[in-house]
């Protein structure tokens, strides 16, 4: 009898405990709630607010609904079109250089060279030191009167006289690219190095026994093996570079005469510099759409590459 009642009481406890526990989906909701709230406040709300603002003529004096006027202005503005093209040019050039240099750097750091550990540490500073500090250093380098580059150029006979790199349209733009590449390459290098170190030594030895040369091994083993990391790094780097603000702002403020103005610099100048919040918001929406489209194309490409180079 006592055994029976014991069983019964165990059964009731189970039922009761079932009742007191939250249903699974509510429990999940409670767990993700804080993070969701955070995202809503930090990302979703400002985004909605930006969309709203982009339909306003908004400044220090208040807001007025203007419909698509801000967007129409952007569509018609030749200057804005140029800025878009310049931004993509800036991005592709800088990311391309970062990837190429990163690949070469990773290969060298992965090779069995003496002092490899030291070199691995030595590539870190551009990434590790604050960007503002690094950029001030570059400001000195680019300076026409006492800059090293100008001096070296004159000494080697490349330059006729002192050259103020940041004062001319072309050299200012490319100087900004160089500095951006300098800052961005170490991260790419380290990620690619990590990917290369993950490639089994046996694969290289097997290929070597089969007579594959250095270049063949690089092309048919290393590149396919690090492809997922390479592609992901390219996307990361592209988005960072597209939105890179600090380097250009510190070096040129987008000048001279807009020669190094990218979308993000343009947006800042309009919205914060000229207090035209509505027009600035419209630019932000354009950036979001462009980057969204870019990322979508990229993801399709990535999936294709992963299918081709993956192990399944």
């Amino acid at each position: 009898m006592s055994e029976l009642s014991e069983t019964q009481s165990v059964a009731t406890t189970i039922v009761r405990s079932k009742r007191t526990v939250l249903p699974e989906k509510w429990f999940a909701a409670v767990l993700i709630g804080p993070a969701l709230l955070f995202i809503l406040v930090i990302i979703a709300w400002p985004l909605v607010e930006t969309v709203r603002l982009s339909f306003m003529e908004a400044g220090l004096g208040g807001e007025k609904f203007v419909g698509f006027a801000n967007y129409e202005e952007l569509i018609e503005s030749k200057k804005f079109h140029k800025t878009i093209i310049r931004t993509f040019y800036w991005m592709f050039l800088s990311v391309g250089l970062k990837l190429i240099l990163g690949l070469i750097g990773a290969m060298l750091l992965n090779a069995a060279i003496p002092g490899r550990g030291l070199f691995r540490v030595l590539i870190m500073p551009p990434w590790v030191i604050p960007i503002a500090v690094g950029c001030v250093g570059w400001l000195w380098l680019y300076n026409g009167q006492f800059g090293v580059l100008s001096g070296a150029g004159q000494y080697l006979g490349v330059l006729d006289g002192p050259h103020e790199f940041l004062a001319y349209k072309k050299s200012a733009f490319y100087s900004a690219v160089v500095t951006d590449v300098w800052v961005g390459t170490p991260m790419v290098t380290l990620f690619l190095l990590a990917a290369m170190q993950g490639v089994s030594r046996d694969l290289y030895e097997a290929a070597w026994v089969d007579g594959a040369g250095r270049w063949y091994r690089f092309r048919r083993i290393t590149i396919p093996q690090i492809m997922p990391v390479l592609v992901t790094m390219a996307l990361y780097s592209a988005i960072f570079t597209f939105n890179s603000f600090d380097i250009i702002w510190i070096l040129t403020q987008g000048g001279p005469r807009g020669a190094s103005t990218t979308l993000i610099i343009d947006t800042y100048k309009v919205a914060i510099g000229n207090y035209k919040f509505g027009e600035g918001a419209a630019r932000v929406i354009v950036i979001v759409i462009l980057l969204g489209a870019f990322a979508a194309v990229y993801m399709v490409l990535l999936n294709k590459l992963l299918r081709r180079y993956g192990s399944k």
Partner: peptide, 10 residues
């Protein structure tokens, strides 16, 4: 090889 050393992407 002990690990077979097959090229996973091929």
């Amino acid at each position: 090889f002990q690990s077979y050393a097959l090229y996973p992407h091929l």
